Simulated scan of single mutants.
Amino acid sequence: MSRPRRIGILGGTFDPVHIGHLRAALEVTELMELDELRLIPSARPPHRDTPSSSAQDRLAMVRCAVQDLPLLDVDARELARDKPSYTLDTLESLRAELGAECQLYLLLGWDAFCGLPTWHRWGELLDHCHILVLQRPDADSEAPEALRNLLAGRSVADPQALVGAGGQIAFVWQTPMAISATQIRQLLASGRSVRFLVPDAVLAYITAHGLYRA
């Protein structure tokens, strides 16, 4: 009997996409033996400032970033919506497309995970997926009170022991990489190099289109 497909989901503004995003995606793909990991650029993120660059540029940069990575793909469905990018809507759409058996893994950084109680219909997320919390070894903060019962009831110590199409939470330790899109935009605005912080193809796109200049 063949195992269900395993699909990872990493959303974000990707303004711009950088090697921290890609390293996290690759590490989870290998650890969880995913069939595919989709990077999903958000159009109008409800919890973030409006992105500095256009949806078209952000989508193009993510496509540049994954062009030589066969297990990483780009999913533009949130950019096609004329409303805020709610993760629940995306999960419902993916579940309808991929079927009930597919194992969906939603990747969230620790800060995003701690902010879950402010998300649209956040209590329904686990109806559609497992959540993998990307945790760095240097992170030492505790989860907010609103998440403690959820963690107590849904956490699995070993991410590779997650079973079923969704419903559980596991922590995945990440290689520490203190890189942020904000830092990259600031460096570019001040005329400094961001080489080795973003893939060369992304840097070439930024340069060619004059993005993030002061």
Rank of each mutant, 00 (worst) to 15 (best):
M1G: 15
S2T: 14
I7V: 11
G8Y: 13
G8D: 08
G8E: 04
I9M: 07
L10H: 03
L10S: 00
G11Q: 01
G11K: 14
T13N: 02
D15R: 10
H18R: 03
G20N: 07
H21T: 12
H21F: 14
L22G: 07
L22M: 04
R23Y: 14
A24S: 03
A24Y: 05
A24V: 14
A25V: 08
L26P: 03
V28A: 05
T29K: 02
E30P: 11
M32V: 09
E36F: 11
L37E: 02
L37H: 05
L37D: 02
L37A: 00
R38I: 03
R38G: 01
I40Q: 07
I40N: 06
I40C: 13
P41G: 04
S42W: 08
S42G: 03
R44D: 15
P45T: 10
P46L: 11
P46T: 09
P51S: 13
S52F: 12
S54W: 01
D57A: 15
D57T: 09
R58T: 12
R58Q: 01
R58P: 07
L59G: 01
C64P: 10
A65P: 14
Q67S: 15
D68R: 07
L69T: 08
L69R: 04
L69C: 03
P70A: 03
L72G: 09
D73T: 15
A76N: 07
A76P: 12
E78H: 09
L79G: 00
A80G: 01
D82W: 06
T87V: 14
T87Y: 05
D89H: 10
T90E: 00
L91T: 10
S93W: 03
A96R: 04
E97Y: 03
E97I: 11
G99S: 00
L104E: 12
L107K: 05
A112Y: 09
F113Q: 08
T118K: 15
H120E: 10
W122C: 08
W122Y: 11
G123M: 06
L126I: 02
C129G: 00
V133W: 03
V133N: 04
Q135A: 06
R136M: 09
D138A: 08
A139Q: 15
D140R: 15
S141T: 10
S141P: 08
E142H: 09
A143C: 07
A143W: 05
E145G: 06
A146D: 08
N149D: 14
L151C: 09
R154V: 10
R154K: 14
V156I: 12
V156E: 06
A157P: 01
D158N: 12
P159H: 05
P159A: 00
P159N: 11
P159C: 00
P159R: 02
Q160G: 10
A161C: 02
A161T: 07
L162T: 13
G164I: 07
G164K: 01
G166K: 14
G166N: 07
G166F: 10
G167D: 00
G167L: 04
Q168M: 09
I169G: 06
I169F: 01
F171A: 13
W173I: 00
A181I: 04
A181H: 04
Q183V: 02
Q186F: 05
L188F: 04
S193K: 13
S193M: 14
V194K: 02
V194W: 04
F196V: 13
V198W: 00
P199N: 01
D200K: 09
D200C: 01
D200V: 10
V202C: 07
I206F: 09
T207R: 10
L211V: 09
Y212S: 06
Y212N: 11
